[in-house]
Simulated assay, not measured.
Amino acid sequence: MSLGDLFKNPATNRLSHSKLWANVACAAATGMFIHLGVMGALTPEIWLIYLGVVGGYSAARSWIATRRDNAKGGKDA
């Protein structure tokens, strides 16, 4: 996987704005999370929000891709 795969649509190999901005948002959240960790300012609420947003986004993308693949294959989803 190349760095460009984070920002390109695999079907067209063109820039995907949704992938671009989603990865920018995750990178910004991760940077802030690391900064707060270094400063000793992480709270349980920040942990839950960060993991829910970043992990939830990843899980949602995987679920949507699975549903899309099942729909294309004619299988019941």
Rank of each mutant, 00 (worst) to 15 (best):
S58G: 10
P44W: 00
F33A: 01
G40T: 04
G55T: 04
I46D: 02
A29E: 06
I49V: 11
I34A: 04
G31N: 09
A41T: 13
T30M: 09
I46Y: 00
T30R: 04
G37P: 02
L51C: 09
V38H: 05
A59N: 08
V53Q: 04
L51H: 06
G55C: 05
R61C: 11
N23T: 15
L48M: 09
A59S: 04
W21I: 15
E45I: 08
L20W: 12
G31W: 06
G37V: 03
A41E: 14
P44G: 00
E45Q: 07
W21Q: 12
F33C: 01
A25I: 15
A60K: 04
K19A: 15
G37L: 07
A27M: 10
I34R: 09
Y50K: 01
Y50T: 01
A59M: 09
T43C: 10
A27Q: 08
L42I: 03
A41C: 10
A59Y: 12
H35T: 11
W21H: 12
L48Y: 06
K19M: 15
S58Y: 13
L42F: 00
G40F: 03
A27L: 12
K19V: 14
T30F: 05
T30A: 11
G56Y: 06
A28P: 00
H35G: 07
F33S: 00
H35E: 10
G40W: 00
G56E: 07
T30V: 06
M32P: 04
L48V: 07
A22I: 13
P44T: 02
V53S: 09
Y57K: 05
G52F: 05
L48I: 06
N23E: 13
M39G: 03
Y50W: 03
R61V: 11
A28F: 03
I46P: 02
V54G: 11
L51K: 03
G37H: 09
S58E: 11
V54T: 14
A28I: 13
Y50R: 00
A28Q: 03
C26G: 12
V53Y: 07
A41D: 13
